[in-house]
Structure formats: structure tokens, C-alpha cells
Design a protein around this nucleic acid. Structure first.
Length: 278
DNA sequence: TGGGCTGAGGGCAAGAATGA
DNA sequence: TCATTCTTGCCCTCAGCCCA
């Protein structure tokens, strides 16, 4: 990464995911400039028009508006860094505005319908305890990150109730789903991993927090068996959206919905507004 | 051969920052 | 104060590998 920008990002505590995405966009931008000008371009030669042309090129490549805006945001951060380091006299990105996009969110699944098949999923002899538990927790509005809780975060209140402490909320499983979860939890005793949902086989030995693809894989199987007529297979976002709508239809206060889903009130309010139901 | 799983990269949501 | 924009990084899809 040129001009110490990568180190700057690392020092600011950005994750490796973010740093990699920054690096990719900046390389892509400089690659575009080299292609257009048939030479390596100096920083002081870069104009706002170059950035606009680059963004237009990305649009021509059928990238979505949010992706292009993300790239613009990265370039802004990069040029702002160069400007602060006195490596450029004028920041060429500072006045470029993000593109607008108006998109209606869609709801493909009804939460009552999802809840209705839960007993069938829990009793399906062909499903593993892990798959059953993943579905139970998905119906509680779990995001992928929520599945990365540890064995220590689980508290068995009694035979029919389990409390799971997540980063920003607590989840209670009761009845049959608690019984299934307990069986799944017990099956992990012989495993050294500290995670309840973990990877099983990876190059570096497994035992780390579960991968998003694994969760989606199980949800897709459930989709195929119980929702074959839906265009889109189940995923965590669709379930969370359905849950949010359901909670709102139950006339729950926004603060309570936000607390249940582990987000802030404003996010809930914005989303309901975009769905035109509020 | 098919179930289980992963890597890469684009897309999108959440929350912070900014502006009217 | 509320709406809008921006930043960050998590989520999802696709393609394909591994293994029983």
C-alpha cells in the first residue's frame, strides 16, 4: 500500500477485512489511472475528474450503487490521509458526493410460518442437533456474529430453560428447543473448542468460531425441506426481517423491539419506515 | 456421489457523523 | 431535532474442494 496508508489503517485499529478491502480499491483505482494515462500517475496529477471517471467505469461494470459509494468512501479516506500528510496540496475527493439509491426492502417470509415449522424441524430424524439448534436461534433473530458465543456464555436454568448471554442481549430458549440445545451442548463436552458453534475441519485444525457459510448451508437445507415454494432460500437476514415485522405487528414498543434484536431504536425505526409500514 | 464445508468478493445493514 | 450521508465491517452468493 503506497505512502504508509496501510500502516496508518492498522494503527487506527481497523480490522484486516477492512484493510484488505481498502487495499483492493486503491490498487484498482491506480490500475485504472495507469491504464487510462498509459503511465504511472503522480499523486499531484490526480483530479476530481479522474475519480468521477473511475466511479463511472465501476457503474458501467454493473457494480451496485452501494458498492460504488463504498469505493468512493475508501478513496476519500485515502486522499484525506495524503492531504493530512502534506503529500497533496488539494484533496481531489473531498467535494465528490455519494450516489443516491432508493430501494425498497422486501419481506419474503412470514415469521408465523417460520415458527410453525419449528416443531417439525426439531423432530426431524434426519437433522443433526446442530442444525436444529441453529434454526431455533435463527428464530430468535440471531445474526452470524451472535452464533459465536462461548460455552461459558450458556446457563442452563433448569431442564427446560436455557439462557445464552450474547454481547448485547440475552436469549432464552425454553421447552423442546431448550431440550434439543442441551443435548447438542452435551455432545460438545469431549471437544476442546470454547465455542458452542464451531468449525469442524479446516486446514488449521478446526475448533474456531462457526463460519457464516455453515449456518447458511443448514438454513438452506431447511428451506429446501419446508419452504420449497419460496424463490429465495432462508437466510439470517430474511428471518430477522420477518421477526422484526412480527414484533411490530404485535404492537411492541420500538425500544423493546430494538432490545430483542440487539440494535438501537433508530435502526428499527428507519427500517420500518423503509418498509412503508410505519 | 452428495453432504459438509470454505475462500473470495460484491452487497448491504448498523451506527456514527454531519447538515438543514 | 430530525433527516441524510458516510464509514465500517458483517452478510450473502457463487464456485469449488474435501471426504466418507
Amino acid at each position: 500500500m503506497p505512502y504508509g496508508f496501510l500502516e496508518h489503517l492498522e494503527n487506527k485499529g481497523y480490522s484486516q477485512d477492512t484493510i484488505q478491502s481498502y487495499e483492493k480499491v486503491i490498487k484498482s483505482f491506480f490500475g485504472y489511472l495507469s491504464y487510462v494515462y498509459k503511465k504511472d500517475v503522480d499523486l499531484i496529477e490526480i483530479s476530481p475528474a479522474d475519480i468521477k471517471k473511475y466511479l463511472k467505469e465501476q457503474l458501467n461494470r454493473k457494480k451496485s450503487i452501494p458498492t460504488i459509494n463504498k469505493e468512493l468512501s475508501i478513496l476519500k479516506t485515502f486522499f484525506n490521509y495524503l492531504w493530512e500528510k502534506n503529500l497533496i496540496a488539494i484533496d481531489p475527493a473531498v467535494k465528490i458526493k455519494a450516489m443516491n439509491q432508493i430501494k425498497q426492502p422486501t419481506v419474503e417470509y412470514d415469521y408465523i410460518e417460520l415458527k410453525k415449522v419449528l416443531p417439525q424441524v426439531l423432530r426431524n430424524p434426519n437433522y443433526t442437533l446442530e442444525r436444529k439448534s441453529i434454526y431455533s436461534l435463527a428464530l430468535k433473530g440471531f445474526k452470524t456474529a451472535d452464533y459465536r458465543f462461548r460455552k461459558d456464555d450458556v446457563n442452563f436454568i433448569d431442564n427446560y430453560r436455557v439462557k445464552i448471554a450474547l454481547r448485547n442481549r440475552e436469549i432464552i430458549l425454553d421447552g423442546e428447543e431448550a431440550v434439543i440445545f442441551r443435548q447438542y451442548y452435551k455432545s460438545l463436552i469431549s471437544e476442546e473448542t470454547e465455542y458452542v458453534f464451531r468449525t469442524k475441519k479446516i486446514k488449521n485444525g478446526g475448533g474456531g468460531p462457526v463460519q457464516v457459510m455453515t449456518i447458511l448451508y443448514h438454513l438452506r437445507k431447511i428451506s429446501k425441506d419446508y419452504f420449497p415454494d419460496h424463490d429465495k432460500p432462508l437466510n439470517l437476514m430474511l428471518i430477522r426481517k420477518a421477526y422484526l415485522i412480527n414484533l411490530y405487528q404485535q404492537k411492541r414498543p420500538l425500544q423493546e423491539i430494538a432490545k430483542i434484536l440487539g440494535v438501537n431504536d433508530f435502526s428499527v425505526s428507519c427500517y420500518l419506515k423503509r418498509l412503508n409500514i410505519r
